[in-house]
Design a protein around this nucleic acid. Structure first.
Lengths: 200, 200, 200, 200
DNA sequence: AATGAATGAGGCTTCATTCAT
DNA sequence: GATGAATGAAGCCTCATTCAT
């Protein structure tokens, strides 16, 4: 007797709730300090139920790191067209989206930074992040190259520039507090654009 | 019976060795995964000796975070003169020093990022870092302002620019691998300079 | 609504399947290492179904230990006639049957040995086994006594001899591997017979 | 500063105490039902101390199975000389020793039987036992062969006879209770001897 | 000061049992 | 009757800290 649709839905919601709380806790308290008991309490499920949805703590962490990227951020961050007609408008729209997204990603980025910083401890999730960053940089290089070709951007080493741009996004989000960033996020577009060497 | 000079020196070296290894381990494996036993083994001292030199694990972490800043990085990072005669040369020299230092700080920065990301878990060391970053930014703002006054830099919000510059330094070091960075660090001066809006 | 014959039969088969797999798992992995989930999987029934047929794990174990004895081995092992006319032929036939049965009982005997060895942990199944062994020994004593009376066996303490014989059957099955035993089981009749002090 | 002799001695005694209690508990309650907490309590040490002396539960079990064999039983059980002058006396003395030892081994044998019965669960300790049993049987074969040569024993397949003899020792100890065995152990020499086909 | 054994609290994980569907 | 999600008790193990030597 298979589970009813209603049951399946409830379970999906439960899994989602657990994952959301796990992301927050892992981000704020780190891998070890986040106990399964805390996750269970925060999600309003019993201790044992966490293991119904995730094989073990390692897997929970893995999904906490990879699922937001796959289901949300990957699409948004790669949502720009290096071949756009109006390349300047595309670049500005891209920057706007990137800044906005990185600001929204705050909690998630703390997770990302842990994985990157201690990548020997977290090889599997690190691989996912590393692969994505490569993909991201490659697409950035394309739009930069096209910006240069069409005379919108000055000449520069596109690899260096793309990496600098990505580093800036990451660094800025780690430097600013939530409060500070909310006041000035609109302005952050300016140095981000500047990093791409806009023609004047 | 007072300790002889030789004894004092040996003890100081022992303490230093423990601290060095603790920094590496805390940076690479995180606070919880770094056990006292691991630190002792890596430093070549006995388990109990760690407690002779550091009250407890918390204190060891605190010193691992604060001492390198106080004894090494603070001086180097603040070693520029906003009132220099040749302000352009001073800025370029500053950037050179900053890039070089941030690259060397790799391991230490992983520690810093942990503290910042999980600052509720580490309030005391966080305060030290936070205070320094404020001081750093304020001094950056001064040199930027003077650069603008003397016509070397274009006009920009100096608070925003200083923070962007610092975020860039941090982000770049988290983005690049050791290998990648060693090949191109010279070039990183270019986008760093660009972030300050140099006049052309 | 009473169950149809077909339904009853299906259920009986299901119960039997569960019990068979439980016997194997309990025998090979022990009581604690045998989980209900493993039994369910091995029997091809759902997890919950195990509890439909057996009240709890304890009961499942109890039935795994007692049912094979009651339904199979008791009859076979006691199937000899101390009052037989040709007592020598009866003894030889008995030994043949015993050896053959003990060899076939391999898996089940591992269960038996667990219960005997840890009888404080398993008092109820132990009682069943203990009662049977008493009954077995008593009947062995009878045939031994009659063998002695009719001059087929030499004089010996029949209690001691019966117990030695039973111990031999058990010990031999624990000592030999399946492979070894299959090659030589025919020969095992010789020392078994010897233990009864045959007249030459 | 190394540990003093006194400390070392205390530690050795502690280890021994833990091992003794572990043997008893493993034998009577089985591997899984024997918890580290029970062992600690029975040995009068703290929970954590068990791990000071044994890496983990598996290792504790391994040593519980192998050490008594190596330090006590191996020597005693192999202490007979197949080349003895008076081979009959040697055989009788051997049987006496074996019966006596197997009776004393009661608790330990329950451990042995667990390992043999569930050898897939305990491959390492099983190997040790298996190797010993091979060695034991080989030496038994020698003395049997010499007994036959010198006309003390009737002809028989020495491999079969040796194995039957060993199986008997094991089985008898599993069949009899402590009480029963204490009353009759002297008599058990008789069927054991009989198993070797003594000449009359 | 140096050493490392002793302690037990706390975390992950397993699993029998319950129960809603 | 059949199914499998939910629950939490219990076990193994780690590790910071203490303390005797």
């Amino acid at each position: 007797m298979p589970l009813s649709d209603k049951q399946v839905k409830t379970m999906e919601q439960k899994r989602e709730k657990i994952l959301q709380q796990a992301i927050i806790l892992f981000a704020q308290q780190g891998y070890e300090s986040t106990t399964i008991a805390k996750v269970a309490k925060a999600s309003g499920v019993s201790f044992g139920s966490v293991f119904t949805y995730f094989e073990n703590k390692d897997q929970l962490f893995y999904h906490a790191v990879t699922e937001p990227l796959e289901t949300k951020y990957r699409t948004t961050l790669l949502d720009f067209d290096p071949e756009a007609e109006d390349i300047l408008a595309e670049i500005k729209s891209m920057i706007d989206k990137h800044i906005r997204t990185f600001i929204e990603m705050h909690t998630y980025l703390q997770l990302v930074v842990q994985v990157i910083g201690q990548h020997t401890k977290f090889p599997e999730p690190f691989k996912i992040l590393d692969d994505f960053s490569l993909e991201f940089i490659l697409k950035l290089q394309q739009i930069i190259r096209n910006g240069q070709k069409s005379g919108v951007l000055e000449e520069s080493d596109e690899d260096l520039t793309a990496t600098a741009y990505m580093g800036f996004l990451l660094g800025i989000r780690l430097t600013f507090t939530d409060y500070a960033v909310s006041r000035i996020w609109e302005q952050l577009k300016i140095p981000a654009f500047q990093l791409l060497y806009p023609k004047r």
